[in-house]
Design a protein around this nucleic acid. Structure first.
Lengths: 341, 341
DNA sequence: GAAATTAACTAAAGCGCTTTACTAAATCGC
DNA sequence: GCGATTTAGTAAAGCGCTTTAGTTAATTTC
């Protein structure tokens, strides 16, 4: 990048006004009295010279950046295995851009996530930060920043009630699945889960609670752990089917693993849904087109991104005083793999 | 965002050195003589105060931003239908971050894409810009910026040879598919394509050329147009199968539409690959787990993102004088839907 | 018609950093 | 042992913008 070729001073000179006036016009600043004629002159001069204000100078003078950051704490290669991130970015940038903010996306994949967070916020790189993929425990550091007056919004519930957040209620989503399967007379419901993170623990808990609230004891032998992708879902399902031939339904905690599970079921010579019911989670684009069509849960991820953007903007503009918790509901999409009518 | 609470001056005061020294130490500036003792003092003071340099001030003083922009010209809701963008972002940010740059992602979905481009570059918001989804015609404006010395790298070939670019050679990918099908004795190969954009025209041309080079005349009646997604792929395939029962193979220009095509074939009572062969394009995660497993083409998108980042960095650092064209090869992944052994 | 108000505009002081030109002390060469 | 060089550091001038506190001329008030 080269130095800004056209400065506000040059615009001022050409328009025959002061630098101050140019600034007032460019920012449409209210409370100032600029005649229509002058405004026109300035606009024209700016147009003719191809003037664009220098963002760094502006953020320095204003003490405010026009960027908002999206910080994703997860390895690069994992970020886009699930549809989560793209959708959030999409909804997020939609709102952010409308309000004149730019989106800074940053991935963190080592343990030191807090230095970048501080650097971005305190270095004035961003006006606020939406963070995703952080564990509940990181609440302390976030809280400190929030106390210092920096806008920070986690995507995912935080244990500390002083922290606002936006999230999707996956517990409810999981319970919907299990209740649905129970309603269809299933009692031995296998579960292919993934990773050891907090988020997943919650879902597993929801699975357990849903069963127990229906009087079905939790059976650890029905749980298998995969790693997001079809490959591991396939392996996990194969292991489950071999060791527990009594399962009548399998719940894959994402559609990718459910897809792998589907292969495993096929390969075991079983039919879906006649011999075994299958439910996924995520409602990925392909899920409606599998054969048979996959019953799954759709989470409002784009909307989550929008909500995150709105909340961070409210914080930036000082409109959010009391902590606010946004929890969006997901939706059970009943198709053919669960054998419902 | 609040004003930077800790300034370099405060660090200087605490360390008992000058502001200049702090700057030298923080930037590890070479050619300066700072004793190890002083360097330590400064580092400690910075650490104790929790100092982070103000990015806006830095970019103003240096006349250089540490951001690189990724500009995506397509509607929000379309951005993530294909796996293209997430993968590119992933590879891109990997390299950018390594070199100490931040990633500014911006979506453009209306016709005025050039104002944001100029604003970002000339306003010093980014040190360079990678643009994707632009038509070949936009070359003029880009060229002007490049002539002015701004680093700009399009993802997709440009018709103007003065413009460097990175791209994936989809023509070759398409030809691989067709040649493969021809080798399997197919001569009436349907094609489900999408959109009217340049990129797709090229692919369609490749389809035509591949056929003709094998002595098979191009038959427009075998072409159907969908819109990326399974729904439209399904509809397009249904229409094709109804009106042209003589097709023996279908090439879906992305896996999503191939997926829809698969449903359409199923529904028509035909078997894959016995009655009809099917090939997709993209090698999405699910494609290996469809039943039957989808033959498709894998494009090195993450690598494309990396290459784009490298090229823009080279331009930023003044290392790229002569135009450079990077064209990455994609790979035909032969699975079960085309009936090859 | 003089004082008060308003409209239209500007001078100048920062914002927090980098960088160039400079100084003072220490070290070197012979 | 004395000028030349090197080492270690600093003062001060910007970078391009915003914003506060004015200034001047025109308009209003009664």
């Amino acid at each position: 990048m080269k130095r800004n070729p056209v400065t506000a001073q040059q615009v001022a000179d050409r328009a025959g006004v002061s630098l101050t006036t140019v600034s007032f016009v460019m920012n449409n600043k209210e409370g100032t009295n600029i005649s229509e004629a002058t405004r026109q002159k300035v606009m024209e001069a700016a147009e003719e010279l191809g003037y664009f204000p220098h963002i760094g100078a502006r953020s320095l003078a204003r003490g405010k950046s026009q960027n908002i950051g999206l910080l994703l704490y997860r390895p690069h290669h994992r970020v886009f295995v699930d549809p989560f991130m793209p959708n959030i970015i999409s909804g997020f940038s939609e709102i952010a851009n409308m309000e004149g903010y730019r989106l800074l996306v940053h991935f963190i994949y080592d343990s030191d996530f807090i230095t970048p967070v501080k650097a971005m916020l305190r270095g004035g790189e961003v006006a606020g930060l939406v963070v995703a993929g952080f564990d509940v425990e990181s609440g302390d550091v976030l809280l400190q920043l929030i106390r210092d007056g920096y806008p920070v919004v986690p995507i995912d519930p935080m244990s500390n009630p002083a922290i606002s957040y936006v999230s999707i209620d996956h517990s409810a989503g999981v319970k919907d699945v299990i209740h649905h399967l129970i309603r269809l007379q299933h009692t031995r419901i296998g579960c292919i889960t993934f990773g050891p993170m907090d988020r997943v623990k919650q879902r597993l808990q929801a699975y357990q609670q849903a069963l127990e609230s229906a009087g079905i004891p939790y059976d650890e032998g029905l749980i298998r752990v995969g790693e997001y992708d079809p490959e591991t879902g396939y392996a996990a399902a194969l292991s489950l089917l071999r060791e527990r031939p009594d399962v009548t339904a399998i719940f894959g905690m994402n559609d990718m693993m459910a897809l792998g599970t589907m292969s495993a079921i096929h390969e075991s010579g079983l039919r879906i849904p006649q011999d075994i019911a299958l439910v996924g989670y995520d409602d990925m684009r392909f899920s409606a087109y599998l054969y048979p069509r996959l019953t799954t849960v759709r989470a409002p991820e784009v909307e989550l991104g929008r909500q995150a953007a709105m909340m961070i903007l409210d914080q930036i503009h000082g409109k959010l005083i009391v902590p606010k918790y946004v929890s969006l509901k997901s939706e059970l999409i009943i198709r053919d793999t669960c054998g419902a009518v």
